[in-house]
Design a protein around this nucleic acid. Sequence first.
DNA 1: ACAAAACTTGAGGGCACCCTCGACTTAGCT
DNA 2: AGCTAAGTCGAGGGTGCCCTCAAGTTTTGT
Lengths: 185, 185
Amino acid sequence: MVTASRPLRADAARNREKLLAAATALFAERGLDVPMEHIARHAEVSIGTLYKNFPTREELVSAIFPERLAALDVIGDKAMADPDPWHAFVVYLDDLYALQAEDRGLNDILARDLPNAPEVVSACHRGAGHAEILITRAIAGGGLRPDYSITDMATLTRAMAQVIRDSPGEWRRFLSIYVEGLRAP
Amino acid sequence: MVTASRPLRADAARNREKLLAAATALFAERGLDVPMEHIARHAEVSIGTLYKNFPTREELVSAIFPERLAALDVIGDKAMADPDPWHAFVVYLDDLYALQAEDRGLNDILARDLPNAPEVVSACHRGAGHAEILITRAIAGGGLRPDYSITDMATLTRAMAQVIRDSPGEWRRFLSIYVEGLRAP
DNA sequence: ACAAAACTTGAGGGCACCCTCGACTTAGCT
DNA sequence: AGCTAAGTCGAGGGTGCCCTCAAGTTTTGT
């Protein structure tokens, strides 16, 4: 349902791209809370132009992250293809947090609710769908403790977001300890 | 080395107490970042008076938390008295995070460095001392995986701080999963 | 009761961020 | 080339927090 309004003028289209590039870089590097002014400056465009294109921070996020979040589907599919359900689940976790560790913005997104970015929310739901299946299978396979739930994984994700933020070198070890705790008795 | 300057005037002493009480309450409830204005208002005192008594936020924190952090010694001693070293360690973790869950300010303190509050830092060091002994004993007792270190526990503490912040009902379960992962192979 | 010292007050300056809007510039059509 | 809709610009108003300081008030010692 993209409103197919008249195409942007050439210069406007160029500015829009510069803004998206700047925001992508800065979100990844400094997280979702970079000042709007910084984004505009980095794009070499005025603050007014930024707001013309993206009246709210959420719209900017919505313009950028659906693509980034497609990576979730990729790692989800990859894990689903793994014949060993426990291994699949563990690999999924590892890939997911590796992704978060590479992109501070993604890390922020997965750790917060952003109620006003529906496309982002739905991508997260898709991710949760994958996760849920992987959990179910891993339990059925006897590898994962039977009381594990998607809620637990949401909690883990927020915890991991924090660990990634302030000890980026530590997250893999932290995760591996936690994963040990997940084996079925 | 408390500078034994002339005693405070009666009204000043009263205000100081009101400020400490207000800050204690607000830190516990809303964390270390409550606006200074809120603290002053809550104490029914002007912002100027707050700054007269505590020129920086750190000094206010330093005036309040050493006492709070004494609780760390208590749970440390309690755990040290436990004859089963694995059990001692697990109980220590549980008590520690229960403490954090009750006091948002304490939670913040244990999750950040506050380089300008030496008394707080030293209390944390004392706590780390307890933790280190409990870890060593639990490893020696064969319960705890032998590669566990105080660094791991610091990481855990930051992770727990986050979990406590945004899913206060979930922390105990999260911890128990993690602790399962800590058993010696 | 008085004066000096101690203390309190809150308006206000500074800063960082948010976002708007009227005046200017430019792409793109004819 | 000239017109106009589309786009750009950035000063500036709003908010929330930080912290200071000159003017006024209260305590306390004599």
